[in-house]
Amino acid sequence: MGSSKDDSATDGDNSSGDLPDSNSGLFSEGEKVLAYHGPRIYEAKVQKAEFRKKEWRYFVHYLGWNKNWDEWVGMDRLMKHSEENVLKQQALDKKQGVDKNPKSGRSIQAKPKSSTEVKVDKDDTKSNGVTKGKKRKSESGVEKDNVSLEKIVKIQIPSTLKKQLVDDWEFIAQQDKLVKLPRSPNVDDLLTKYLEYRSKKDGMMTDSVGEILNGLRCYFDKALPVILLYKQERQQYHEAVADNVSPSSIYGAEHLLRLFVKLPELLAYVNIEEETLIRLQQKLLDFVKFLQKNQGTFFLSAYDSSRGSEGSSKGKDN
């Protein structure tokens, strides 16, 4: 991913003024696409689409990559996620000498330290007067901490919990429902329950587990408003969480489970040694299994459709 980088949409990009009509239509927000980045094609998702300066600009997130790589691109960088184009992607990968597993290939080859440095340099020379200091800074910061993507923690989420997450998405994003807050048990309760369960099982020496659980709570409280909410839930958050209240006392298993989807991303910032990472992985997995074992009691089976707290009926509540 070391090639030239289109900057923010506000920049006076004059490279391609016209819409290429050859392209099979526009891309929509939320659409999964294939995106060129440098010599390769990556799976990406269109987060935003905006029409600026006579051309469509898309803010894309590269799936499986840190969001610091998210960027505005023109449509010349995107392709529909069709079978044909996936084949194209694979062919390109092959040509670039990537091994079978695109993930590992990407992590090793596509993002070495140097590539970002090159990229940053390019930004500098481009110097088109856009305020991008912040972005660059975060990129270099990530680079420093995030050097080895292959050392990332892997948590295999059991299939019944994956299903739970898909149902969660369906309730909220598709059916316009919400988790009724506050939840009981809340995240704090869940963590405490687990610690009790663990100390009963092991006797003593649970303080490393305790430290991990504290870490999870800390992540949860910080991450919830930023990356763990669907768009539909933001208003509810502002209503339900007062300034001096921690989300872990309001939200429950549904949202905690989402943290586990994001956890590898967050933990990548800590440069954990391999042996420790393996142990940590086991401990996190044990916690996930605890959630699974109690899935019936910890998770809601039905979400709130009235949206009563928001006062506005969208005609959905019949």
Binding site: E43, L165, V166, V226, I227, L229, Y230
Partner: peptide, 24 residues
């Protein structure tokens, strides 16, 4: 740590990785 302050300062809607929907 400066870098720690940099993360989680950009709001982003939650989205499930595509792999979760493979069955569908």
């Amino acid at each position: 740590d400066d870098d720690d302050a940099e993360i989680l300062n950009q709001e982003e809607d939650f989205s499930l990785p595509q792999s979760y929907f493979i069955k569908e």
